[in-house]
C-alpha cells in the first residue's frame, strides 16, 4: 500500500486532466481489464450475482485553471475546486506536461481582501509567445507532493491519492461471486461529476464510496469527535446523505468478525458531490468507508495501517450479501 500511495503521489491529476494517472492505474490494475469512458472514468467490471454494487473513489486533485495569458508571460487563473486564495500564495503548481509555476499576487492595500482576480502564476516565460509554448488556456495545474514514510505513517501525501490506492488494491485482487464494478472517477473535486455519469450508466443497487475524512487528533482540535490515526478505517454514518442502517450493520459485523477495529463518524458538512450522487441514484443506499487523514492545507498525514485495513474490510464486505 505504501508503494502504491508513493507511486500515485508522483503523478499529478488535476480535475479534467486525470489521463496520466489513469494510465498508471490501468497498469496497476493488470491483469484486470479496465474500460475508459469519454470523461476519463476508469471502470473494472466484475460480473456476478445480484445485487449490483458500485464501489468508487475520486481520483482528481485540487487544481487551478488558466484562463488568460498576459502579454508579458504571466498566467491568470481561476480556482477549479474549493481553494482559498491564501492557500496558494507562494506555492508551486505543476501542469500535466511538467511545466512548473509559482503563484503570486498583486499588491493589496490594507483593508482589502485578496481575490483571485488579483493573483497570477509565474512560469518564467518572458512573453506571451514563450508562455504559449509551455501552457495552453484551459490547462489545469495541481500541487506536487513528495511524501516521506515514517514507520507506518506517510507524511506529505496528497489526500486525494488515498482512496484510489485502496480501491486499486481491492479491485486488482477481487474474485468474489458478487457483481461489483470498481470505478476510478474523474472531477470528484468539482462535485462528483465523473461519478455521477458512472452511476447513471451502471444503475447499481448499492453504492459504496471510499474517501478520506478529517482526523481530530491534532493539538486543540475544535472538533470534539474522536477520529484518530492508527485506530482503523472509519464508517461514515447518517447526517447529510442517508446511509442505510442495514448495510452499515453488516459492515460493522464484518469488521468485528474479521478483527478489524473501526471508528464511526458523522459527516456534518454539506457535500455537493454526495448530494449530486444521491440525486442520480433512485432510492439506492449509499455507504462510505473512509481513512482518517490529518490535512494541513494541501498536504496530509495518514497511517498506512488504516489504509491497509480499509482495503481488507472492503474486500470482505464485497463478499457479503449486503442487501436483500
Amino acid at each position: 500500500m505504501k508503494e502504491t500511495i508513493e507511486k500515485l503521489n508522483k503523478i499529478i491529476a488535476p480535475s479534467g486532466f486525470e489521463d496520466n494517472l489513469g494510465k498508471e492505474l490501468i497498469e496497476i490494475l493488470k491483469p484486470m481489464v479496465a474500460d475508459t469512458d469519454f470523461m476519463g472514468n476508469i471502470t473494472v467490471s466484475h460480473r456476478g450475482k445480484a445485487p449490483k454494487i458500485l464501489v468508487l473513489a475520486h481520483i482528481d486533485d485540487d487544481s487551478i485553471v488558466v484562463n488568460h495569458i498576459e502579454k508579458d508571460g504571466f498566467l491568470r487563473f481561476y480556482p477549479a475546486s474549493n481553494i482559498k486564495e491564501q492557500q496558494l500564495i507562494g506555492r508551486e503548481v505543476v501542469f500535466p506536461n511538467g511545466t512548473v509555476g509559482l503563484v503570486g499576487a498583486e499588491e493589496v492595500t490594507e483593508g482589502t481582501v485578496l481575490s483571485f482576480d488579483k493573483m497570477f502564476i509565474d512560469i518564467g516565460a518572458e512573453d506571451k509567445k514563450t508562455a504559449q509554448k509551455m501552457v495552453s488556456i484551459g490547462d489545469h495545474a495541481a500541487i506536487k507532493h513528495t511524501p516521506s514514510v515514517v514507520g507506518d505513517r506517510i507524511i506529505g501525501t496528497n489526500s486525494c491519492k488515498i482512496p484510489s490506492s485502496i480501491l486499486a488494491h481491492v479491485a486488482k485482487e477481487f474474485d468474489g461471486a458478487t457483481d461489483v464494478t470498481f470505478a476510478f472517477c474523474v472531477q470528484g473535486r468539482l462535485g462528483a461529476r465523473g461519478a455521477s455519469a458512472v452511476i447513471t450508466r451502471e444503475n447499481p443497487d448499492l453504492l459504496i464510496t471510499i474517501e478520506t475524512i478529517f482526523a481530530t487528533d491534532t493539538p486543540n482540535c475544535p472538533n470534539k469527535a474522536k477520529l484518530n490515526l492508527d485506530e482503523g478505517p472509519v464508517l461514515v454514518v447518517g447526517a447529510v446523505t442517508p446511509t442505510d442502517k442495514h448495510v452499515n450493520a453488516i459492515i460493522e459485523e464484518t469488521a468485528e468478525s474479521a478483527g478489524i477495529k473501526i471508528q464511526k463518524a458523522v459527516k456534518t458538512h454539506y457535500d455537493i458531490g454526495d448530494a449530486r450522487m444521491n440525486s442520480m441514484l433512485s432510492a439506492v443506499p449509499m455507504a462510505t468507508i473512509a481513512v482518517p487523514c490529518r490535512n494541513y492545507q494541501f498536504s496530509s498525514v495518514i497511517s498506512s495501517n488504516d489504509a491497509v485495513l480499509a482495503a481488507k474490510l472492503l474486500s470482505k464486505i464485497l463478499r457479503k450479501k449486503l442487501i436483500k
Partner: peptide, 23 residues
C-alpha cells in the same frame, strides 16, 4: 474565441451526467 473566464453554467452542466454520461 475562447470563453475567457471560468464563470457561469449552462444546460450542458446538467446534462453531462445523464444516461451514462453525454459529451
Amino acid at each position: 474565441q475562447y470563453k475567457g473566464t471560468v464563470t457561469g453554467g449552462t444546460n450542458a452542466g446538467r446534462m453531462q451526467f445523464e444516461t451514462g454520461g453525454i459529451p
